[in-house]
Design a protein around this nucleic acid. Structure first.
Lengths: 213, 213, 213, 213
DNA sequence: CATGAATGAGGTTTCATTCAT
DNA sequence: TATGAATGAAACCTCATTCAT
């Protein structure tokens, strides 16, 4: 929210008020957008959900797309914060344990935020080129952190991985799959089973001394 | 197109003409929808793209959603056809070779049809409950066929898999990931690398006698 | 139908066929129009109801309004026929008895044809000036015949009426009222009561020697 | 207007403004609808006639049918008001005089408002079931008041009437007939003659001591 | 004679956005 | 700062009518 919302039009000079109102908008409109979809949600409905007049809404936001961007980047920021704080508790773990916990954390975040994750997958195309790029940057950051864990494991001799980037991406992508394909997966396994199985698979692939396991 | 288009309204009684015109509509409007998104594409544009008047368009189709459904189910049918014909050439292959070729076939289809795959992921929510279900059924069919190959491998003693359904789903899902995350993957590997690596990963996981490889 | 349909456009030269097809159109489309209203009934529906193609429909009829006109004038003709044949059986009755029977006949026709009567009241405005005039002429004819009966009664000394035209019109109008206000009258009296009462009222008004009755 | 417009959709919360705009809509669109008919009048024309944009029109009204309902119920309310205020001046008159004046008042209102009365007869069928019922209720109210006058006359011994409901209804219905059949009546009598004659007829029927007149 | 595919103007309604208060 | 009335382009869809076959 902080970094990205800078270039969104506002008629107010009070930065703290702008931040407060925009937070109000994001918090209150997200569920509405998620439930109805971006295109089918009207600005009138958004204003109502936010307990604001339409006029006030446009005081702090330049367009409907701006709100979409706020929601998406706000979610991305939240995810980053959680991942960041997670990484601060990670330093003294062995790579394998660190990876297991990372996967658990990432997959849980996706599970808890499945509606908004789905929403972002669907509606990102409605963002302008520039804004879409910022969303991608956020994703890249998560992948980079995951790759970092993998690399440490490789350095420590615990993992053996040809392409750490692709492996990191696989791990992230499969966390999204739990959400994107919930209509199928929900009927065939629980979240716990899913996480456990995917973790096993990953470890099977990257364990350095696999033949000994 | 054949099976699903049954309940779509038309004012014509000439089935072959209806089929011809609907094919014309699907063929010509798909790119437009894919490029602009469902919501932002107007029926006027669709009619123009199809070289029809709006009136003619509505002669063969009851609503905008019907076209969305036609596009999606037409694509699903195409995929099924290809997979089906692929399976007919499969019987005399050993399971491992069959799986390798299946993955290659599936991933290539996704690659070639990436725009429409992406489109389907985004816009399926705009279908009615019933129509959405039909799309899902089509997906389930592909997964079931993939699972069938895995099961044969297990029976032949070549594979060892706890949960064949989840494994089959993983294989399919990762073919979608190539499309859904192309903004990332394109920069980090070619399609050939992607397929090769994912195939390796899968085999690493399911090979019965992995320690001997 | 005979007189009035002359100036309606047709592409056929076979007069008997034209008459046959137009009868087919009137017979089959009337209920549809009556039920849905003129504006909300489409020519496609009309064609279907008539077991014709739209093309054939327009072979024998120039426009949608023509059908409206056919229906209305066909009904008017039917009514006239019945009234005419009724009058032929009337000559040897005394005026009072003749009037009583006339009222009964008129009111019954309205009762049996209430839907179409209602329809005509609502949709006559959709006719062109000329066609509307023809409908009015038909109405005037019925009134004139009724007035004739009244006049005979006056000549015979049975009735005493200042304005026979207005009286005749009242009698006709009250037969329409039974239809136009059925939402009220149905709840307060039967058709038989209605006819009996209105007949009594009329006689009360026009009886020459009322005090003696 | 007050009572009935409750359930019509508006985007405004300012009740007085809503009332003002709806009045504006009713006042300005009535003639248009009356002249062209409901079906053939477009919302674009209505907006123009009301000196509003289409958007503003839909700010205060949910649909085209709502406007029809507003017009009809607005007229009904007006009539009721006039009748009500008339009844307040009636108490000290003898029944016969009261009836004579009531008929005059009712028939005059119909005469002055003949266009809209005609319109209501034609277009009421376009209302929803519920709204149509409200129109009928208004009519029933007028009939009930008329019946009340008749009953007082019966109690006072001035009138002798079998079925006061039907008699009251006849009186009201014949006031409509002046409008519904103006194409005939206009040519045969003036409004004054019509009222005088119908009054005479009514009195002839209901006078208790008719033989003495 | 009979058909029905094709047309496109025009219907009602929605909605993002502006601006006067 | 906050409001919400006002706008009008543009959305989806219908339908009377024509004309080639």
């Amino acid at each position: 929210m902080n970094k990205h919302s800078v270039k969104i039009r506002t008629y107010s000079n009070d930065k703290s008020l702008v931040q407060k109102r925009r937070r109000q908008i994001v918090i209150n409109s997200t569920d509405l957008f998620v439930k109805k979809g971006y295109a089918k949600t009207s600005m009138r409905e958004v204003a109502q959900a936010c307990n604001m007049s339409i006029g006030t809404l446009y005081h702090y936001v330049g367009s409907k797309e701006d709100i979409l961007y706020l929601i998406i980047s706000y979610t991305a920021d939240q995810q980053r914060e959680i991942i960041d704080s997670f990484f601060n508790t990670l330093s003294n773990l062995k790579p394998t344990q660190a990876l297991i916990r990372l996967i658990w954390t990432l997959y849980q975040w996706q599970h808890v935020n499945q509606n908004i994750v789905l929403f972002i997958y669907r509606e990102t195309k409605n963002l302008s080129q520039t804004n879409r790029q910022l969303v991608f940057d956020s994703e890249k950051y998560i992948i980079a952190l995951t790759e970092e864990v993998l690399k440490r494991g490789v350095e420590a001799g615990e993992f053996k991985i040809n392409n750490t980037t692709l492996m990191a991406h696989n791990i992230i992508a499969l966390s999204h799959i739990w959400v994107l394909r919930r209509w199928f997966l929900r009927k065939h396994c629980t979240w716990e089973e899913y996480v456990r199985t995917q973790t096993e698979y990953v470890l099977k692939i990257i364990r350095a001394n696999e033949s000994l396991t």
